[in-house]
Write a protein that binds this DNA or RNA. Sequence first.
RNA 1: UGCCCGAUAGUAUAAUGGUAGUACGACAGAUUUUGGUUCUGUUUGUCUUGGUUCGAAUCCAGGUCGGGCAACCA
Length: 555
Amino acid sequence: MSEEKSLNFIEEIIEEDLKKGTYQHIVTRFPPEPNGYLHIGHASSICLNFGLTQKYPGYTNLRFDDTNPVTEETEYVESIKDDIKWLGFTWKNELYASDYFEQLYAFAVKLIQEGLAYVDDSTSEAIAEEKGTPTSPGKRNAYANRSVEENLQLFADMRDGKYRDGEKVLRAKIDMESPNMLMRDPILYRIKHAHHHRTGNQWCIYPMYDFAHGQSDSIEHITHSICTLEFVPHREVYDWLIKELEIYPSHQYEFARRNINYTVTSKRKLLQLVQEKFVAGWDDPRMPTISGLRRRGFTPESIRDFCDRIGIAKRENLIDVSLLEFCVREHLNKIAHRRMVVFNPVKIVIVNYPEDQTEILFSENNPENPDTGSRELPFSREILIEADDFMENPPKKYFRLAPGQMVRLKSAYIIKCEEIVKNENNEITAIHCSYIPESKSGSDNSGIHVKGTLHWVNAKDAVAVEVREYDRLFKVENPGVEEGDFKDYINPDSLKIVTGYAEPSLLKATNNDRFQFLRKGYYCLDKDSGTDKMIFNRTVTLKDTWAKEAKKESK
RNA sequence: UGCCCGAUAGUAUAAUGGUAGUACGACAGAUUUUGGUUCUGUUUGUCUUGGUUCGAAUCCAGGUCGGGCAACCA
């Protein structure tokens, strides 16, 4: 049915490996450090890693890269698991780099025995100094000449807590003159007398990324270890360690991190936004975190579709957030039930409608899917419409209500504007209209055709709700690369709180419902809602071609 | 004055020596009881200079531009 989608470069590598018989099945892993919440960039990596093993035989592990006890917390572990599950993926094994601490220690001992690692007593300043610069080679110090026996003893003492933080490190003995800075005798272990979220106080030495990641991959027999481009220079260390340790040869492949405009996706920056209260928390609906997007009303389907559409490659990128918006609109259009909510009301009095009468009308829940049925709408003499939907002196091509003009009220009647009622300040207080009884939706035999259809609510039954309208968090496309502090570019108007007047059926809304407020956008109930007050988040607006047209006119 | 990546419409991504395509956007039109949706059409691109070749986005060489590398972070 659908024609074959072309492969990305990693899929090509995998198909080649499978064809050659290098592997019968593949193993990938998603390796977050539990030091923050997952964001949309991680979603890309999750979709890639888990997607690969859905497409090809194999499985994906979830492995927490928890080798730095001072930044990591169990709270983050839980949120990460929740987010992956919510996105719709299932891992084969839940693993932790900290599970391998004993094994990793044994690897280090082996390296020492081979004469490929040594304990260095230098200060971090001295080590940095001796490392040289990208353009000049480094110089090995005298500690590198220690005997195997001495190194073994010293390393054991490090583990036993005989030294303070920073007193000693274990280094690999590779090549201080390598053009690759990372190969200049990289640090393998450092001393940290700190509490670890899983191993507690069992350890006071912790492996560095370079000594933990590749080795963990190897222990798990990861076939394709996929990471982002900034790790390219680490690959040489990764391969060196696997070779010298003579362990399972996992391979690292790198792709470009996905960046999205008008936001930041760096855990450090996101943490600042939270800590300095620029947002209400990690799950603030303006945040690009998975939990923020979830609260905002995004669906897992739409996020997966987005990741799919942007694909993966090796060049830098800045993806337009409008593509994400397109994806969520497309999905929500199919599943969201329609409701009518008036935000900035003006009262309509239907002068020829009986004063004490209320009739029940019906409106479809979703025209895209007739199976979803319809809901009841009370209708009577006084209703509310959007103030924007009326103009005393309308421009050309204005299809809404204006003096003498006719419009249809969605799922109700055609009305005609007869008279504007104003107060002493010349403000409109009500609009008097007449209605055409024969034009009732579903049984219209009036023969009248109008251009405009408006949403409305019955004044008597309207329910006031709070609506939170979100805009982009930053004023500039790429706040991360702008001069100065990225927080200087925060959009002060990223949250607007307004009151909406909703049709009564919205009272039945629950947390998992998604709604389209007719002619407005997509909304969902926020967790801050209480029994006394309903709060809705605007996920995204509807496309508004009239707004664009009107803007053009005014120029 | 090093090493390593990368460069295809506005954005993202294909074409793997043989017609530069797709999606989003933009523009125009049709449909529509949402100025939504849907449908149709149009628009715009291979960083540069050479070379190899019947033929180059693709291979080679030089250049330009962008990014990364000198945490006891990951």
